[in-house]
Write a protein that binds this DNA or RNA. Sequence first.
DNA 1: CCTACCGATCGGTAGG
DNA 2: CCTACCGATCGGTAGG
Lengths: 214, 214
Amino acid sequence: MMSPRRSVHHAQQTRHAIVAAGVALASVEGLAPLSLGRLAAVTGVSKSGIVGHFPSKEALQLGVLAEAVRIFRREITVPAEHCQPGLARLQAVAENWLSYLDRGVFPGGCFFTNVTAEFDGREGPVRDAIAGANEEWRGYLAAEIAVAVDRGELDPATAADQLIFELMGLMLSLNHFLQLDHDPRAVDRARLGLSRLLQSCAPAPGATANSPPG
Amino acid sequence: MMSPRRSVHHAQQTRHAIVAAGVALASVEGLAPLSLGRLAAVTGVSKSGIVGHFPSKEALQLGVLAEAVRIFRREITVPAEHCQPGLARLQAVAENWLSYLDRGVFPGGCFFTNVTAEFDGREGPVRDAIAGANEEWRGYLAAEIAVAVDRGELDPATAADQLIFELMGLMLSLNHFLQLDHDPRAVDRARLGLSRLLQSCAPAPGATANSPPG
DNA sequence: CCTACCGATCGGTAGG
DNA sequence: CCTACCGATCGGTAGG
């Protein structure tokens, strides 16, 4: 007897084709101008086929955003999991981030930079989901900074909010210059800024790590 | 006899009302979703009244962008003209920039950050005009940095491209955090980063200015 | 500057 | 998942 497995799998494939096309379109043009019609044309699915997976445009935008989050994690944080938590992992995610922008993982540059600029002046669930993705990312950085301080790899006086603010600035600037000028020297400028920034938070010479005695 | 002055003046007022409304709308939602119909509704002018001033949507976008450039100059560079060229003027434009974002001169944050993110992956005259506005701004910063180096206010080894990259990063980050969190502490973080950045380019103690002998 | 209109596309629904 | 269709809005034109 026929199991429904094949058609379920096929539906999942269709759904993934839709969000993948949506991510590519939205990274270049934004989440707002995403349209059912264009996505239907690009994927070969009918408009009502799209609606079958995403009952509203808003649901589609949220689905596309969730896929972008998956890709970001796959490119940035997952490959850094094998690193020691703290400074080493912080440096790894920073380098992964440079590489992610340099390689053009999303055709329009950093997906989150683009949609944050697009939606930060609006209201609603899409704006909230974008803000949540940003908060998750800052929380990740804050946690690794805290570990690095605790391990004595960063100065105990390190102001995490300030460090995150400046880290974000380097990454936003890299995305800005790469997308506008396509000048690969921007990657080296971001790397240099990053290196100086972390150096400025280095522990005072002779300071000892906050590790258990023994 | 009736001169045409009055109607010409009225037409200029109408034109200004259109671009002013366009700047407000575009700073929040972007230049792409600007529509003749909504602008007509907001200004009370008919759609064909809009078309009379801007024969195409593209012309409207370019007109709105030009008005935003005027406002940016009025807020940032013009008030710094009374400062000594070089480091003093650089610090003045930086402070004006902080204030411009802090005061929310454009309702959606930095107009240029928003439309650059929106159009940097597209092609055409609007993208080119946005890139030109960015180039003009960088050129302004580069010129003041060069003067500051020449006057001995910044270290002769200062890498202007690197300094501009990091300055832009602080401003992009400020816009990002202000728009996303509405947290005024971001302004202090940008100011602190700015101060450290310029300090890192300070001339070595005892170095003399490159001024003519006498 | 206006009204009236054009074909195209929008998000979404009906019915199957 | 499909075709066919809905009212609304898009950029732009005709005619005055």
